[in-house]
Nucleic acid binder design. Structure first.
Lengths: 204, 204
DNA sequence: GTCTATACAGCGATAGAC
DNA sequence: GTCTATCGCTGTATAGAC
């Protein structure tokens, strides 16, 4: 593995574990048995490390999305898609946990992240709208409630990482939260569908 | 105002605004036109500042809870109660935004915070159970789904502060999120109730 | 590319004068 | 109580030898 990549890998590990502010170039370098001077040869400053990790994140999350674009309406596929997205987000969780720190340092990341989420919201509204047309969702759910559901979805995907401690979640994080998020739709379903979905999501 | 209190007030302001790690005793002192030495006369170290602010938070949030304990089942009261809680949490938002940093420094706060939330979950389950018995909630909602709803509630109250940027919320934060959280219950209601509640929550 | 050495700034905290 | 002065440490980043 190239030195550059080793540094990136270790930086990601420490950003996720210790947080962005507590992670230092000294610390990263020494964990790799490398001098700090050498690290700064490869990455002139800490922000460049963050920037490159963010670019990697965007690349992976875009890949995941593209992959399932056409199969998105079947409930098993929606669930699997969420699971995949969540696992990528989990890998780069410092971007969400320390979002304020990161955004303060690099405002371009803030912009890109908000755009990403706006795109997600549009997608989710399409799915919901599809379910309403197919009579999978109940007919008495108002438009504003559908809008709300999409907001709740965005809220969930951005917040789940911080919440795991509060909820006492330890293992299988991405899978747990994919179900957690998906489960929010249960009461919107018509009765016949509800049983199927509840089965898919398994007992809590 | 006593010097002690001035320091606490400024510390809270900076913790909320800059984050705990970026806030320094130097910074707090100079904002008050006071020497750093003097600040350290009143608070020997930074952790004592955090600790005292946390104690104030606990005192206020407990007060708020006690106050409406008996009226908790009417929907208007539940909403008002949430609004009050959220506004206290907002005042001490660094405790939630920087929860990992704070918990790393003072594990006693982690313990107390998790207990507080566990209590909240119990309360919310009581309310839900009450609504089910009163036939305000639909009868076809499973027990595990009720449990889930309580978890979602805890998830919401702990995460809303970080999410406002993602959702584009700017003003009236506590009121907005009280409704946001409450609105999650809409699809669980029987049809007749749904209209009343939707009116209470207003158009999005 | 990788190292050592070092400059420089900022932090928490303490000592001692007033 | 409040101040100034200072210590010891840790952080980012650069310079120059190999």
């Amino acid at each position: 593995m190239r030195t550059r990549d080793k540094i990136l890998k270790e930086a990601l590990k420490q950003f996720n574990g210790l947080g962005v502010e507590k992670t230092t170039t000294r610390h990263i370098a020494s964990a790799l048995g490398m001098s700090q001077g050498n690290l700064h040869y490869h990455f002139a400053n800490k922000d460049l490390l963050i920037k490159e990790l963010f670019d990697n994140f965007i690349q992976k999350i875009t890949e995941v999305r593209k992959y399932e674009y056409q199969v998105l309406f079947k409930k098993e596929d929606v669930l699997a898609s969420m699971d995949l997205s969540f696992s990528v987000m989990y890998k780069y969780r410092f971007l969400f946990r320390d979002n304020e720190t990161v955004w303060r340092r690099l405002s371009s990341i803030k912009k890109a992240m908000l755009e990403l989420l706006a795109g997600r919201k549009v997608e989710i509204k399409q799915i919901i709208s599809h379910y309403v047309k197919q009579n999978i969702f109940r007919p008495d759910i108002s438009d504003s409630q559908q809008e709300y559901l999409a907001d709740q979805f965005v809220f969930n995907i951005t917040s789940w990482l911080n919440a795991s401690e509060y909820l006492g979640v330890t293992k299988q994080k991405s899978n747990y939260f994919a179900k957690f998020t998906f489960r929010q739709w249960l009461p919107y379903l018509v009765s016949e569908e509800m049983k199927n979905w509840e089965e898919l999501l398994g007992e809590k």
